[in-house]
Design a binder for these strands. Structure first.
Lengths: 121, 121
DNA sequence: ATGATAATGACAATCATTTTCAAAGTAGAT
DNA sequence: ATCTACTTTGAAAATGATTGTCATTATCAT
């Protein structure tokens, strides 16, 4: 099918935080890389499938990506400045599992995000 | 400026869960209401500003709205048939609160959704 | 009724994302 | 090196949600 373009990954590494497909593309262009927007989208999609990157949504709905570790975690995002803290979600995992069982659901996954105002804002 | 159209609100009440602007509009049309899509968007925007509705994002980025009643709850959705169960989220509330405090965040809200396969599917 | 102000909706514009498809690259066999 | 089958690429068009525009319509106090 389609593998992820390594230059996209390395750019995202360099960013060290969240970036949208459009931003990654612009950044690469600015740095002289010749790559199409389509390829950037495809690569990010791939990386997402391989669980190498995480996706989140900005307030306007634009998808933003960033590298994620191999452990399943959640985010605490500042609504004001966008700073993000990774959170351990052990409590959530347990909760999800028990709720699922109660309701007779199988293969239950979950999303959970916290947002607020950080200490500096 | 622009106040929210009460029919939009009452439609959302009737839905009793999440719905996108497009869905609210379609629903109203099906029920014979004559209203423009633009007005639906504006009204939801208004309701959001007045904190009468909550907004969330679907996986594809489409914005979905729901009344934010006084009891905060979560959803367990079947990926296959779409059936939805409302879940009490006391455990999450506590978790969110404690995490927020640890990290020095204020005014922390959260989103949490569970999805899986229901017993009938 | 009149005029000021706000609400409405058809339509066009915007913008992220996806799809299409033909061209370019790659690897392996001969 | 040449041929062939397969994959990757990217330009351009399509899609779909959301927002902007602006003329028309409703509202309401005078």
């Amino acid at each position: 099918m389609s593998r992820s373009n390594p230059r996209v990954l390395s750019t995202l590494e360099r960013v060290g935080g969240f970036a949208s497909a459009q931003e990654v593309h612009k950044l690469m262009q600015r740095e002289g890389e010749r790559i199409g927007l389509t390829t950037v989208y495809r690569s990010l999609q791939s990386l997402l499938g391989e669980k190498i990157v995480d996706v989140l949504r900005r307030e306007d709905g634009e998808a933003i990506y960033r590298l994620c570790g191999d452990t399943h975690h959640h985010h605490l995002v500042c609504k004001n400045c966008g700073i993000t803290v990774e959170i351990e979600g052990g409590a959530i995992e347990k909760w999800a599992k028990s709720v699922a069982q109660e309701q007779g659901f199988r293969d239950v996954g979950h999303t959970a995000e916290l947002f607020g105002t950080c200490a500096d804002c």
